[in-house]
Design a protein around this nucleic acid. Structure first.
Lengths: 199, 199
DNA sequence: ACCTGAACACCGTTCAAGT
DNA sequence: ACCTGAACACCGTTCAAGT
């Protein structure tokens, strides 16, 4: 034992992140623990702390990868469409579809809290910002002559709305409310908002 | 020790819930633990398990009380208003204001997850249902001639939207998006949606 | 230099034993 | 009957010691 050098730091990092993603997908984030992760990759706990600052840091890395996948998925979904309204509605639908397909990963992105004094690093904030930016870009053709401030606000309102639907859907609270189709609800939210916004 | 009978089961229950609420308000739900709670009320851990099924049960009771307060607060905010549009906008604003005033309690209501096989009891679901019902009631005068299904969906869309704003605001992600006023954003979301829905 | 494994200070939950 | 406190099976994190 000690000094195995079977894997580089980078390899261990990648193995740990993949093991974490598997655990989260299959059993949810509550099942994630340093000891389980370490044994899944054939190392001891101590080794994880050589590669990650702590568990919060590891989760941040996992979340960054989830945000990357979500962003890529939304771009893909957009690609075949031309009509501005169709494109913006597709953003909502692909967001919901991603959350539905990967509920545990999606939840972790939005429910993980850093200790109150700690802020996420700038590169991470940029990934979040990119989500809003996607909506802003698609909104522009629909917001004839509106200032960039109005567009920022409309993008935030739309994304908040779709996001709220996702959360209530995942926590089963929309069933309680008597909603039968989450995608219909998303369509109602976005199209009615746009009707009001566009005028 | 043993057999103190200083307090009835009901009294211990109330003491524990109040201690939990204090801890959550001051330090957030991560600071909540059975041992801390027990020592705060002058009993040992074992006693908590005589009064509550487990920690999940205790948190459910805390959340029920939070939902009761939130509901009461929204009714109060509604009382002085007559105009239907003003009333429904006020629902959104008072919801946001409550979340802002009691962020840790509000977060716990919507982020606490029961083990996947366990459902919340019916009396708890009713408290959630009541929130949607409040919106439906206020929506009715504005939805001339629309079926009850359309109203249910519109209420769900509005509440999801406001809820989403709350979440992103509490997790500081709206700052990242460049939003300066959460209340303005709420107003934009609700009034634009209503314009689209009514008109 | 790299990794271990034991230690520390915590958890939630149970239940035999004490009064 | 009521409550304790020790036990069990876990946590995250650190770091002296081994190769």
């Amino acid at each position: 034992m000690a000094r195995r050098s079977d894997h580089s730091r980078e390899e261990i990092r990648e193995m740990a992140l993949e093991a974490a993603e598997k655990l989260i997908a299959e059993e949810g984030s509550k099942a994630l623990s340093a000891r389980k992760l370490a044994s899944a990759i054939g190392y001891t706990v101590g080794t994880l702390y050589l590669v990650f600052e702590n568990l919060d840091d590891l989760i941040l890395q996992v979340n960054a990868r989830t945000l990357d996948r979500l962003h890529a998925r939304m771009l893909e979904a957009l690609a075949p469409l031309d009509d501005p309204t169709e494109r913006i509605l597709m953003l909502g639908h692909s967001y919901i579809a991603f959350a539905d397909a990967h509920p545990h990963h999606w939840e972790l992105v939005f429910e993980h809290r850093l200790p109150p004094e700690k802020e996420p690093p700038q590169w991470y904030k940029d990934k979040v910002r990119r989500m809003f930016a996607l909506v802003e870009t698609e909104l522009e053709p629909l917001a004839a002559g509106r200032g960039s401030k109005a567009i920022t606000q409309a993008a935030a309102a739309l994304w908040s709305g779709v996001h709220g639907i996702c959360i209530l859907a995942i926590s089963k609270q929309l069933d309680v409310a008597g909603v039968d189709s989450v995608q219909d609800l998303t369509h109602s939210l976005m199209s009615n908002y746009l009707k009001g916004f566009v005028g």
